[in-house]
């Protein structure tokens, strides 16, 4: 078995975007880029799930549910996706081998905790990482991990370990690949972008729960204000550290996601010849910048430099500002007529 013909590795900021870009490009979408996939996939989001904890800290996400970006992105472009999950690891490997030998690179959902080539410091129990397996050579599976600069490899046992990681979001050998790809016409692409913009604006402003969408930043702000009194300084520090990791860490990027979406809006403005979108791009860039600025302030607390209530208030005010910026932008975008 050899590598699939002419597969090109593309590095991206986020793994799921990257798998979509890699697989779509391989199927003839030469112009496919990370911002475009993320935008078409209605990827931008914010949610602070109440009463739930991840790694003993707040459950916050800056992007939509795992798997949704790829699913919605493919749907927007009319791309059909085949998906399989398995209870039997040997069947999971057999189908993977079959696809590779017929020259089809496939996306795999994996857990990070046992992912051999990841630095130990980054290996937490996170089960929604995505990679492309693009070939097999000398019993090694050839891996294109989108967050990396170069390609890598895993042996069969290592790959099975991560494809059958367990716990929340367990991948169960989840494997997926696009079939019968027809490159969308310019007209279809323009239409898909308009629909995706509208849907994303809906998610950010119209969901009637305060912790979902841009108003979620306000919800988090209120929590942050209460933390020092409610859970004490030690836990507050851990929580802020967790927010920053969720926000900025490799492959997750909350501020990062804002910049990807702003880049999408910039592209959309050019494709649709619409300056209003360029204005929105500036606003979402501002939201990303505010997130990074708040990360610096949070760091001062979890590093132990600051501990008074006023510093927590300052961070919370920053989150309120993000909510205001995003709500204003997405409300306008929701009402926009093309």
């Amino acid at each position: 078995m050899e590598r699939t013909k002419g597969f090109e590795h593309t590095q991206t900021a986020h793994c799921e975007n990257g798998v979509a870009v890699g697989l779509f490009r391989h199927q003839g979408y030469d112009y496919m880029s990370e911002p475009l996939v993320f935008g078409l996939g209605v990827g931008l989001f914010y949610i602070h799930v109440p009463f739930m904890k991840i790694n003993n800290g707040p459950a916050i996400s800056f992007r939509t549910m795992p798997g949704e970006i790829f699913r919605r992105g493919a749907k927007a472009l009319g791309i059909e996706v085949v998906r399989k999950k398995f209870s039997d690891p040997s069947k999971a490997q057999a189908l993977l081998d079959e696809k590779l030998s017929s020259g089809i690179p496939v996306g795999c959902q994996v857990g990070v905790f046992h992912l051999a080539y990841f630095p130990k410091e980054y290996r937490f129990h996170f089960n929604a990482h995505n990679i492309i397996v693009y070939g097999k050579k000398d019993q090694q599976y050839l891996i294109s991990d989108p967050v990396m600069e170069t390609v890598t490899s895993l042996n069969a046992a290592q790959l099975e370990d991560v494809r059958f990681a367990r716990g929340p979001l367990a991948p169960k050998g989840h494997l997926y690949y696009p079939v019968n790809v027809q490159v969308a016409s310019d007209e279809q692409l323009r239409k898909a972008i308009k629909i995706a913009l509208h849907k994303n604006a809906w998610w950010m402003t119209r969901v009637p729960f305060s912790f979902i969408g841009s108003s979620g930043f306000k919800y988090t702000a209120n929590r942050i204000r209460k933390w020092p009194k409610k859970i004490g300084l030690h836990e507050s520090r851990l929580n802020l550290g967790q927010i920053v990791r969720m926000q900025e860490e490799i492959g997750t990027g909350g501020g990062g996601f804002r910049f990807i979406y702003a880049a999408f809006l910039e592209q959309a403005a050019a494709i649709l010849q619409d300056d209003r979108l360029a204005g929105f791009s500036e606003q979402i860039t501002k939201s990303g910048d505010l997130l990074r600025a708040s990360a610096v302030k949070m760091a001062a607390i979890y590093k132990g430099r600051n501990s008074e209530q006023m510093y927590f208030n300052e961070i919370a005010d920053g989150f309120d500002e993000i909510a205001a910026v995003e709500l204003e932008t997405f409300k306008k975008m929701y009402k926009m007529k093309f």
Binding site: E248, A262, A299
Partner: peptide
Amino acid sequence: GQYEKELSTGWDIKSDALNCAWDE
């Protein structure tokens, strides 16, 4: 003023958050 891709070796703010998690 246009978006482009750029590589980064890291950011201290994030490294500190990661260290903080490992201390815990």
